[in-house]
Design a binder for these strands. Structure first.
Length: 616
RNA sequence: GCCUCGAUAGCUCAGCCUGGUAGAGCGAACGCCUCGUAAGCGUUAGGUCGCGAGAUCGAAUCUCGCUCGAGGCUCCA
């Protein structure tokens, strides 16, 4: 709230014209007041009753000082560029008027254009300006964020045979990773004094980097990173569409005063980015839920259409995580999230679908190169859901084939009754969720999503929220952390061939062989193989070393021998050996290794001499 | 948000403790070399030492403030 306070001999104002629809209903007549303090007042966004009270107390104090007993509150928008909505403005103005004591107080009409003339006294205390804001600098937190810390959870380990053991009594000696997850989630543990290894790798492999000109947690992706990310995005999208997901695209920002948003806000514990635009208070989505639910609520759904699966790959979702929580590609403020919702007619259908998505998620992770022993499962449910669906839960745990972490809530705190996630455990013992799915029993109603059932009655669907891979950036993080671990164990890490930015590098020994190499490159490119040519004027050893540093799987030196022979000399990075292969067999080997995965063209100049160095 | 640490060439870093003309390697440009499976050689260019103040004859170096970044904590439904 901003106030310009003037001690006046007199003020005279005349309302001339309504400025806004919600202007006060008054008789526009000339008003004159003598010996008065006039407060030109702008009520700003975030002002509330406490601000009104503080302001009036402060004004009364100064009025006492100058010995004046008459106050005119004069709504004056021009003091601020961050005004509250007219409704709030008027409400707070009235609150100020009502909470005053022992003075004569009036206000000039709100929402009117007014003409005024004023005579200000000339003493030192006659003019002052004041700014009031909420006393606490405390951030607005959603009720979900606040209640999160109050949740009462019971922690168990469930073994593949379906037995639940209290976490304190479980013998973790053969389940070190699960122990880390359990300790990580249920208690707090451990201080690490080094940056996670993937941060260095993401720079050295020219995948991604921090962007100092943006907000923290908003990364830049270099050509290599863009290609890898794009391949993962395409793969996950293909898998979800095979499963039956229907891809859509929805806006990334929403009006926080939209009725469906306001209540969801309070059920989803995330901090948001806000954008003010033309009086609207917008926020950047922190999930794809909004868009898909709003869309689905406009669809005319029959039980015959269900389960109906909507899918969106959000580039991006935004969560304003606390600055200290951000780490490399593990935790970001802007991230790409495949999000697939299934609208189901009843719990039985939801559970059937839930099973399918569980299998889908395991398959997707495996296709990405993240295997079962790379992650640990966590499963969370309400006590009542567990009692009614023990078989489902036991079957899922048995499928994983190893003990899983269980969190059980006495009552429903969130909008879901069951949730599971696969957690990747990194080199520093940090757990982060990849795939996840939830059974949501609230949002169908909240968003007014309905379908017509067999009896021609309107019902709200149960909604599943699945991300079969988790955030794409986080998948890259998991892969890089896995690679770092392999390096530590003395192994040579390797991107799955379908993710490698360059799959084949040709090294012509001399310029004379460049043409041959180009022709070969064209041939391989036609077969959807990503091939480039190191035509730089460096020794053969140097160029092979550079290819090694880029983790390129196949290196082919092109010299006299190759030109005069039908076979290629293929240096295979996994072994370091050179093999003689015909072009056909070489192509086949690559196509077999990348079968069923998306293809993408090289995302850099084919000649290395034409590429800038990305020094990171 | 709290604590700790950091900021010097395009990149990685040395120099700072103990104040006195700004250093290396990599990379880049140019030239030599035309090479057979993890680093060939030479020359050159490239810096407002994050910003601001203080003390000093003199500051990359000491002191204070600020900005930005990173890690940890908290957090991660």
């Amino acid at each position: 709230m901003r106030i310009l306070q003037l001690h006046c001999d007199s003020i005279e104002y005349t309302p001339t014209k309504k400025e806004i629809k919600s202007a006060e209903e008054i008789e526009p007549k000339k008003t004159r007041i003598e010996e008065v303090v006039v407060c030109f007042t702008a009520i700003e966004e975030d002002d509330d009753s406490s601000v009104a009270k503080n302001a009036i107390i402060d004004i009364q104090k100064s009025m006492k000082q100058i010995g004046c007993n008459k106050l005119l509150l004069y709504p004056y928008a021009h003091l601020s560029s961050n005004l509250a909505s007219p409704g709030t403005g008027l409400k707070i103005l009235k609150e100020m008027q009502e909470s005053s004591t022992g003075i004569e107080i009036t206000h000039a009409p709100f929402g009117w254009t007014k003409a005024f003339s004023i005579q200000v006294k000339g003493h030192p205390l006659a003019e002052s300006s004041k700014v009031f804001s909420k006393d606490s600098t405390k951030e607005k937190t959603s009720t979900a964020l606040e209640s999160e810390s109050k949740i009462k959870s019971y922690w168990y380990i469930m073994t593949p045979d379906g037995k639940m053991e209290e976490i304190e009594k479980f013998n973790f000696s053969n389940h070190k990773q699960l122990e880390i997850l359990a300790k990580y989630e249920s208690a707090k543990k451990r201080s690490v004094d080094e940056p996670p290894p993937h941060v260095n790798l993401m720079k050295k492999l020219a995948i991604a980097d921090y962007e100092p000109a943006s907000d923290s947690g908003n990364m830049r992706f270099y050509p290599n990173g863009r290609l890898i990310k794009s391949q993962i995005e395409q793969y996950v999208t293909d898998k979800i569409r095979d499963y039956g997901g229907i891809e859509v695209e929805t806006p990334i920002m929403y009006d926080s005063h939209h009725p469906s948003m306001e209540s969801y806000f309070n059920r989803f514990p995330a901090r948001q980015y806000s954008i003010d635009s033309e009086g609207k208070h917008l926020f950047l989505r922190f999930a794809a839920c909004f868009g898909q639910f709003l869309m689905a609520s406009d669809f005319q759904l029959s039980y015959k259409n269900l389960p109906y699966k909507l899918y969106e790959l959000t580039r991006y979702s935004f969560r304003r995580e606390q600055s200290g929580e951000l780490v490399g590609l593990r935790r970001l403020r802007a991230f790409t999230m495949p999000d697939c919702h299934a609208f189901c007619k009843d719990m039985s259908q939801a559970i059937d679908e839930f099973r399918k998505r569980f299998d889908l998620s395991r398959e997707v992770l495996s296709g990405l190169g993240i295997e079962e022993n790379d992650y640990e499962m966590g499963i969370r449910f309400t006590e009542s859901f567990y009692n009614e669906n023990k078989e489902l839960i036991k079957q899922m745990v048995s499928k994983v084939g190893k003990p899983v972490l269980v969190e059980m809530w006495k009552e429903k705190f969130f909008y879901f009754v069951l949730k599971w996630e696969f957690n990747f455990i990194d080199n520093l013992g940090k757990a982060s969720a990849l795939s996840t799915d939830q059974i949501d029993v609230e949002n169908g109603k909240r968003y007014g999503i309905t379908f017509t059932d067999e009896k021609n009655e309107r019902q709200h669907p149960i909604i599943l929220h699945n991300s079969p891979s988790g955030a794409v950036e986080r998948v890259i993080y998991a892969l890089l952390e896995k690679f770092a671990k392999q390096v530590k164990d003395g192994k040579r890490p390797q991107f799955p061939l379908w993710l490698a930015p360059t799959q084949v590098r040709l090294i012509p020994l001399k310029d004379d062989f460049l043409e041959f190499a180009s022709n070969l490159a064209d041939k391989l490119t036609e077969q959807n193989i990503r091939v480039d040519i190191d035509d730089r004027n460096d020794t053969i050893g140097k160029r092979i070393r550079d290819a090694e540093k880029e983790w390129i799987n196949y290196v082919l030196v092109i010299g006299e021998k190759e030109i005069n022979s039908p076979s290629l000399s293929v240096r295979d990075r996994t072994t370091g050996d050179v093999r003689q292969l015909s072009t056909e067999n070489f192509v086949k080997e690559i196509q077999d290794a990348t079968k069923g995965k998306p293809v993408s063209k090289l995302n850099s100049a084919i000649l290395l001499s034409q590429r800038p160095q990305i020094m990171v």
